[in-house]
């Protein structure tokens, strides 16, 4: 991991802000513990959880949708978030539940009517998200609807919040998804239909953004069904590797 990154973990009954260290995470007292020894929490205090639909042209085509004439923006509740190395319940009845590896942009301060050229100044940093969708539950009202996108723990996020300064070009980051060790999805953030400055300008034209708001910027082509027991890694170069395991939800 390059540059400053912070995480939040629970360890031996207390919650800590931690930093990456060789072989694990560094607690505030300098102690280094293995990353498997801690419980990973969302690496920032989330406020509005904002997501974009169909923001990569190849993914839109894969789902047989036209690229949207303006960003498709929806919100999620805090119930949806789960930390690194967490588990996500998968409804047993679902025929198609797929991962969506996405670059998550965390806002650092209150912002309204931000021009594109100033957009990066309101970004605190970046992290990795996996915005699972249960396609069986999609309906054509306010689509994607909450039942398909807002189940408990259906959006793993983390492990690190990587400071904006440490990500010089967030619009050119290779991202990929690895399921049980096999690469299944590969893309690059440069292929977003609406890039980060356009998204921040668009959102802040219609709403006040504030510290802790997080924007999930969409996923590229390559989504496929995953099942209980699958280990899903969402990897964005320079930002992090987010691990999640699907569990049976009965």
């Amino acid at each position: 991991m390059n540059g400053p990154a912070t995480g939040r973990v629970a360890y031996r009954g207390a919650v800590y802000d931690v930093t990456p260290a060789p072989g694990g995470v560094c607690l505030p007292n300098g102690e280094v513990v293995p990353e498997e020894a801690v419980v990973w929490l969302v690496p920032f205090r989330p406020r509005a959880i904002i997501a974009l639909g169909l923001n990569y042209g190849d993914h839109a085509r894969e789902l047989r949708f036209e690229a949207p004439p303006e960003p498709i923006v929806f919100f999620k509740g805090p119930n949806a978030l789960v930390g690194h190395r967490g588990t996500t319940p998968r409804p047993r009845s679902a025929r198609m539940m797929h991962f969506e590896t996405e670059l998550a942009v965390v806002i650092g301060r209150r912002a309204r009517f931000v021009p594109e050229r100033d957009a990066y100044a309101v970004v605190a940093g970046y992290t990795v998200a996996n915005d699972y969708a249960v396609r069986d539950d999609l309906e054509n009202y306010y689509r994607p609807n909450l039942r398909a996108k807002n189940r408990d723990r259906s959006t793993p996020i983390g492990p690190w919040l990587v400071a904006s300064e440490a990500v010089p070009d967030p619009m050119n980051l290779p991202l990929r998804t690895v399921v049980n060790g096999r690469i299944v999805q590969e893309g690059n953030t440069r292929d977003m239909l609406y890039g980060i400055p356009e998204i921040i300008a668009y959102l802040s034209r219609h709403m006040t953004l504030d510290a802790g708001d997080v924007i999930l910027t969409g996923t590229p082509k390559g989504v496929e069904n995953v099942v209980a027991g699958d280990v899903v890694e969402s990897i964005i170069d320079g930002v992090g590797r987010l691990l999640n395991t699907l569990v049976d939800d009965g």
Binding site: I50, G77, M207
Partner: peptide
């Protein structure tokens, strides 16, 4: 189109904190 059928579950939206 584009709805095709009446909704089979409650149709929800989120009112985010800025609202």
């Amino acid at each position: 189109p584009p709805y095709e059928a009446p909704p089979s579950h409650p149709v929800l939206y989120v009112k985010p904190p800025n609202t």
